[in-house]
């Protein structure tokens, strides 16, 4: 089954007199377990596409399927449910709630899902270990480096075992070493857990990681290439 399937997505933003094209007739299929990079210059529509796929924003027209869900037909509540249970998000910045520790940030999502406290704790500790932050559970975000913060965000994104992780410029604020570490982590999660990744990025090193690279320009897909990336399951 396709992890993501979208047809003829369009989205315009009206700003005063101006109509800005966010997405223009975008169709895209992503199979389960793929590791896809979305690239393109600033303003090309990467974030707009990710938001539409993740149910954060509704397109003006077109169809979106995530697994067996018709995202474009869902109401607000159902979209929130979908984000909560099916999709992991990693944003560029402000990923974590500043007053909650690393573990509490991860537990927060499970709490919204209604996972019992005991299980929450066990799962968040296990996932922190998996992302290499076993002894940082009690640190507040401000006490973690940018790379560590992003890894906590990844841990939170995957703790509820989503099939799809959407990451919007996850390495933009990281030094190259931290960026490599983060991409390695994505790669491992992709290979070992079969999680589908869609990563919007400007970063050439991140692009190099991706087995498939979708290039956007002015809201249109201008190229869709497969390349020998490092993080991928059998395609």
């Amino acid at each position: 089954m396709a992890a993501v399937r979208c047809r003829a997505l369009s989205k315009c933003f009206v700003q005063g007199e101006q109509v800005i094209t966010g997405l223009d007739d975008v169709s895209l299929d992503i199979a389960e377990g793929e590791f896809v990079g979305l690239c393109g210059p600033s303003g090309s529509g990467k974030t707009t596409l990710l938001n539409a796929l993740g149910g954060l924003d509704t397109p003006d027209s077109g169809e979106i399927e995530i697994g067996d869900l018709r995202v474009d037909l869902l109401g607000k509540g159902a979209l929130a449910e979908m984000r909560l249970h099916r999709i992991g998000f990693v944003f560029q910045a402000y990923n974590l709630i500043p007053v909650l520790s690393a573990r509490e940030n991860i537990e927060f999502v499970m709490q919204v899902q209604g996972v019992p406290a005991q299980e929450r704790k066990a799962r968040s500790l296990a996932i922190l270990e998996e992302v290499g932050l076993a002894d940082h559970e009690d640190r507040l975000p401000a006490q973690l480096s940018g790379g560590q913060q992003q890894r906590v965000a990844v841990a939170r994104a995957i703790v509820s075992q989503p099939t799809l992780v959407l990451a919007d410029e996850p390495t933009a604020n990281l030094d190259s070493h931290s960026a490599d570490q983060l991409m390695d982590l994505f790669g491992v999660l992709n290979r070992e857990r079969g999680i589908t990744f869609v990563i919007a990025t400007h970063d050439a090193r991140v692009m190099a990681y991706c087995r498939r690279l979708v290039r956007l320009l002015d809201g249109k897909i201008v190229s869709d290439e497969r390349q020998p990336g490092q993080g991928q399951t059998a395609a």
Partner: peptide, 8 residues
């Protein structure tokens, strides 16, 4: 962020 993560 909380709402993006699925909080109602």
């Amino acid at each position: 962020l909380m709402m993006a993560l699925g909080m109602k």
